[in-house]
Design a protein around this nucleic acid. Structure first.
Lengths: 190, 190, 190, 190
DNA sequence: TATGAATGAGGCTTCATTCAT
DNA sequence: AATGAATGAAGCCTCATTCAT
């Protein structure tokens, strides 16, 4: 692995564990087993590291979103599928997501990054709703707001899982909650 | 106002504006027009100030929760009422809530404080659901999980309002979303 | 002595001995027997210390210039007197002058400070010449340029004295050099 | 051009522009379009580069001094000529001279280099005076001191030209100043 | 010869905390 | 109770120099 990637990976773990402010350049160097100076050969500043992490995350999520859209185009994506693959993404990228969720209030940089993530998530859900409404499987709800509502629910699930793992997983029930609110007809009654 | 309260109030504003790490004892003293040493006559440490703020907030929310329970006992509290008085609480305590929402990932202390807040909120919603299910106005949903789901939705609303005020307010639609999922009978169809 | 003055005095000695860049905040603190942090209670930055030193020096020289002008007004100031009191000033303020002379090429700040010093010196010599020419004791030479020439000569003397003390003192002869060039009549022949 | 010369040339420009301390090995390598390591293949240290620059300058000035002496031997060199060819030298070697003038207070190394320059200049003027006195065109002034005085005047002119170009050029008048002080007979009266 | 990543000492500065007054 | 100067550890970052390739 390149030194740059090593720094990025180590920083990602540390920030998600202790937060951006408590990860110091000295700590980071020690844990990555490099010298402090080396950090600055690869990154302009400590914030620059965070920026790179967030950008990489943004790309990873974009990939997921594209895959979901592709499956939607084929018409094979249920609400369960959509949320399911997001949960899988959450498990695979816990550190990144913890950084995005935890740092938005600290730096303007991270606030914007989170805003982008919200927007992407909302957009995806909106599209899902839009198709469902068109083909009559979903109720005719306002697109933008409802997309945001589902995005928010997903954020809450992530946050709980990451920060309060002692709270019982309620993702199954969350899907039911949404189904009842959105899906048309008797199957909504289960 | 006592010096202690002055410090608390000033710190609350500063933390909600710039974050805990960027509020320095020097800044705080200057803004409160006291000397830096005075802070340490009233609080053990900078973290101690945060702890006091969070405790006061916890009490304030407990008061709200009790009032809500009292109205539930009288059977006069609709879902709209319940969420409505929470939105009012949010407006009146924006600084505190921003602190709770923004700092949970930084300090173990704040993580626990947020957990307490979640737990209270969930408990309140659970009780609301429980009564609604008993009197047949709400569908028979799992109490704990659904309480958590609604609590989460509320957190999302708060966060969006506080950190991304540029995003359109979707609280009205959120209430509809929940009504459709929870309320029994034709009025759920509207 | 106040801590601020102690820092100023110690810094003045150190800068004149080793130069601005080689005086580090750590060195300065050690020599002044204070902690490094204390420096920043009294000065905004390392450069700020230099600025204060230069400003104080500027004031001191302004005082000298005013005294010289007062004596010129009384008509009791010879060229020897004028240069003589400048040499005395040089001896009394060697450290300051070494800083001004040595640092002008390093920082914009010091370049301007030196420019101010030059301008003051030139102005004083100009005035001296102007009076001498009016009362017929000096030849009718261009004021501004000749003032600058004498100022320059004085700077050379200072520099040599401060940086190459091993070179024999030629100030006496410098005065003669100027007398021959400037003073009218047989006494110019000596 | 050899890599060594390239480094030397680039360093000369950079030092004269931003000063020795602000020229970093990284900057230098970038501007010379070589790698940082390459610098250390040709020079022992950063200071070593400066030393080489100063030595080359010393040689260049020696050449000028020899040419001047040759013309003196032929008896065709006036004071105007002598200063004139020094001004030309100044224009042609502004970067070197700025380094010598600006750095003498920083490093023992440069202090000595400047001392050598002063000594050479003084020697040349002394010899000029000595010849003038012998053939009766100049007044009988003390050789060493007066040589130093003229050298100093020249340094002042250089410094002003290089660091305060906004100040009007007073070199013409400086020559007049010296003529009046040194040249015998009616032409000294102009 | 040349490269450029790596080093680590050291630079300036910040800041929570203490303490004499 | 209040002050505010002093502390010193620690933070981020720079830079001359080295070394494996």
């Amino acid at each position: 692995m390149s030194t740059k990637d090593l720094i990025l990976l180590t920083a990602k773990d540390m920030i998600s564990e202790v937060g951006f402010h408590k990860m110091t350049t000295a700590n980071l160097a020690r844990r990555a087993e490099i010298s402090e100076g080396t950090i600055y050969r690869h990154f302009e500043s400590k914030e620059d590291i965070l920026q790179h992490i967030l950008e990489l995350f943004d790309q990873k999520y974009q990939n997921l979103a594209e895959q979901c859209r592709a499956r939607m185009d084929k018409g094979t994506l249920t609400l369960e599928d959509l949320l399911g693959c997001h949960f899988a993404f959450l498990d695979a990228n816990a550190a990144d997501i913890k950084i995005v969720l935890g740092a938005y209030s600290i730096l303007e940089l991270t606030r914007r990054s989170m805003a982008r993530f919200i927007e992407r998530l909302r957009g995806l859900f909106e599209e899902f709703l839009s198709r469902g409404i068109k083909n009559g499987t979903l109720r005719d709800v306002p697109l933008a707001d409802t997309g945001m509502i589902i995005a928010n629910m997903f954020f809450g699930l992530m946050r709980t899982k990451l920060y309060w793992p002692e709270i019982a997983d309620f993702s199954k029930e969350a899907i039911e909650f949404c189904r009842r609110s959105l899906v048309v007809g008797p199957e909504a009654r289960q």
